[in-house]
């Protein structure tokens, strides 16, 4: 019998700690499928974030580094400069990449570091208990915006991908989503292209992935997918930005 679906080689055979309906498990798997398909498990190096995906290295079966919160792209910059023959990527959430690490993000991008970035945007802080993220929508209730995010006091959803797309050093920016099977296929394609770009020395490539967080959105997994489609995408439209 032909096996048509299985665990990617570079994904460890362990259960994840993620909540039901969380997008991280899917995103982790997409990366591992891409690593397998490109046959780069032995030369890929990941930099994990601080956030819910902090122990991504427990799930990925290839070399991984931790980074302090927000500093993944500084760490990745150095690893790639030291070992140009490796394929280095960061996996970062909205707090890591677009709040505490904005400076590292913008400057690694602006230097045109030859790196791939998977940016998970779920519009909330999961690990610390559902506080406002820079990408939280106006009106969205969180632990630190109990009556909904107000622009006057908490500013607007930060469109960091659009900002990065404006930088001369950036090669490619694309926004994808995990809310439907066909979108997941597109997200994988975008991630794969970001890796291929690096292997072809094209420079800095970022894929923003809209990802569900049913727990801190206060929704069922199904409702969370619908909310991406009905609300999140309106603020963060999908497609190639650069």
């Amino acid at each position: 019998m032909e096996k048509v679906f299985g665990r990617p080689n570079s994904l460890r055979n362990v259960a994840t700690h993620y909540c039901p309906g969380c997008g991280h498990g899917i995103a982790h798997r997409l990366i591992c499928e891409v690593v397998d398909e490109l046959n780069i498990r032995e030369r890929v190096i990941a930099v994990a974030p601080v956030g819910c995906a902090v122990i991504a290295y427990d799930y990925w079966d290839f070399d991984c580094s931790e980074a302090a919160h927000g500093r993944a792209l500084a760490v990745a910059t150095a690893i790639k400069r030291v070992h140009p023959e490796t394929v280095v990527f960061t996996y970062q959430g909205d707090g890591d990449l677009a709040a505490i690490g904005t400076n590292e993000t913008i400057h690694a991008a602006n230097r045109g570091e030859n790196l791939s970035v998977v940016f998970i945007n779920n519009a909330i802080y999961g690990m610390t208990g559902g506080q406002m993220a820079p990408t939280t929508l106006l009106g969205q209730k969180t632990a630190t915006t109990p009556s909904g995010r107000q622009a006057g006091s908490a500013g607007f959803p930060l469109k960091i991908s659009e900002m990065l797309a404006s930088l001369a050093g950036v090669y490619s920016v694309e926004r994808a989503s995990l809310h439907a099977p066909q979108e997941i296929v597109r997200a994988k394609k975008a991630i794969k292209q970001a890796f291929i770009n690096q292997m072809e020395n094209k420079g800095f490539s970022l894929v923003e992935v809209l990802s569900p967080c049913p727990t801190y959105w206060g929704m069922s997994p199904k409702e969370a997918l619908d909310w991406i489609k009905d609300a999140l995408i309106k603020e963060f439209p999908l497609g190639k930005l650069k």
Binding site: I45, V47, S65, A67, A68, R71, A74, V75, A76, T77, A78, I79, R81, V82, H83, N103, E104, I106, H107
Partner: peptide, 21 residues
Amino acid sequence: VFIQAESELAAINMVFGASAA
């Protein structure tokens, strides 16, 4: 490799990356 980092934070974390490498 020499890098003029964007901040002291970035610089020390680059050192972290290079050392990890």
